[in-house]
Simulated scan of single mutants.
Amino acid sequence: MNILDLEFVKGFIRMCNDGFNQGWHERNGGNLTYRIKEEDLKDVRDLLNTDGEWLEIGTEVPSLANEHFLVTGSGKYFRNVILDPESNIAIILIDETGTKYQIQWGLKDGGKPTSELPSHLMNHAVKKEVSGGKHRVIYHAHTTNTIALTFVLPLKDEIFTRELWEMATECPVVFPSGIGVVPWMVPGGKDIAVATSNLMKEYDVAIWAHHGMFVSGEDFDLAFGLMHTVEKAAEILVKVLSITPNKLQTIQADEFRQLAKDFNVTLPEKFLYK
């Protein structure tokens, strides 16, 4: 079997293309990683290169030791992934210490995994633990309307969550745990990775101020759908704010409570007070 015929690889490529078509990945913006199920590699292990150099991750993720990941490349363009996957994405293996990685397939023209690899792997480690291993996808994109809101709303979890919940009835059902907000930080380093992973203990969505959105999900559909829903809510809010600073009507706290009851989700009370 060819690696490009594997279902998770095809799903990864489709998600990259879907994100580009949404306008979220200008130039080389954004990154995507997938924690591979080991059984998915059973038929292609002989195609993996196990002799490559071991490189420093830039952080420590011991709980991900000996796991494989499919990742986008640093400086690579999402729009090119569907055209030439083997040049733009890679399968990497984390070493037994959780401090180094080895490229075992892909990036055939050279290069390294995404510069956000420390953030991705630290968040994979957190979500693996808190989800009991169910979460496998971490996705970062430059979502236009969400970024715009970080210039006009206070950078507080409670405000972003409540404002976006109010924009569409499905929102509190899709992201009932809420949204975390990271103040502006230099991307690609350990500091933003730590700040985001702390939020990911509680949320599946983190907004990076003036930069974009960072989400976690069990699979490609759920992760993409989560980002799509939050960004659509942000688009509605941008339109509302462009019309008036004061909403004439909106969903009220008790209505959110009724919604939670009917859809069997738990909405933290801290987001229901204004």
Rank of each mutant, 00 (worst) to 15 (best):
L64S: 03
E86A: 11
E60W: 05
R14I: 07
M167S: 04
D18W: 07
T229G: 00
Q252N: 04
L199W: 02
L117V: 02
T33F: 08
D18F: 09
E116R: 04
L153G: 10
P176K: 04
G52K: 01
P187R: 08
H68C: 00
T196C: 12
N31V: 01
M200S: 01
L248P: 01
W208I: 00
W165E: 00
I82Q: 13
E269Q: 12
V240G: 02
L48Q: 00
L222M: 12
E231A: 06
I13S: 09
L155A: 03
T169W: 10
R27K: 12
I89A: 02
H25A: 15
E7C: 04
N198H: 09
A193N: 02
Y273Q: 08
G225Q: 10
F263T: 14
P245W: 06
S87Y: 04
L4V: 11
M213I: 15
H120W: 06
A233N: 09
H124D: 08
K239M: 08
L117F: 08
S87M: 10
I92W: 07
C16T: 05
E231V: 07
R27T: 15
P176I: 06
K247E: 12
A65Y: 08
D84R: 09
D43C: 03
F69Q: 07
K232F: 15
N145H: 13
H124L: 05
K108Y: 04
D262R: 11
F263R: 14
A90F: 02
I147G: 00
S177E: 15
K190L: 09
L83S: 15
I91F: 05
V137A: 11
N264S: 12
F160T: 09
K112T: 15
E158Y: 07
L64I: 07
T146R: 03
L55W: 01
I192D: 01
A260C: 11
P172K: 01
F214Y: 15
D18E: 14
H140T: 00
K128W: 06
F8Y: 14
G19M: 15
P183G: 00
K247Y: 06
V230K: 02
H120D: 05
G132K: 12
D204A: 03
M185H: 06
N28V: 14
D191C: 01
S216A: 15
G52S: 11
E39H: 12
D51V: 06
T114F: 03
I243L: 14
G225H: 04
K201W: 11
D109E: 11
G178V: 10
W54Y: 11
P62R: 05
N31L: 05
A65C: 07
T169E: 15
M122E: 07
L149P: 05
H25N: 15
F78Y: 13
E56L: 14
N21F: 03
T266M: 06
A90Y: 03
G189K: 07
M167P: 04
N66S: 13
Y273V: 11
K247F: 08
F20K: 09
L107N: 03
D95K: 04
F12P: 05
A168N: 15
K239A: 12
V173A: 02
V215C: 10
H68P: 04
N246K: 14
I82V: 13
E67D: 14
L4W: 01
P85S: 10
A193W: 01
R257Q: 13
F151Y: 14
E235C: 08
L117S: 00
P187H: 06
T99V: 13
I243D: 04
A260N: 09
H124M: 10
D221Q: 13
G133L: 02
D95L: 08
H210S: 10
E26N: 08
A168T: 11
W105P: 02
D95I: 08
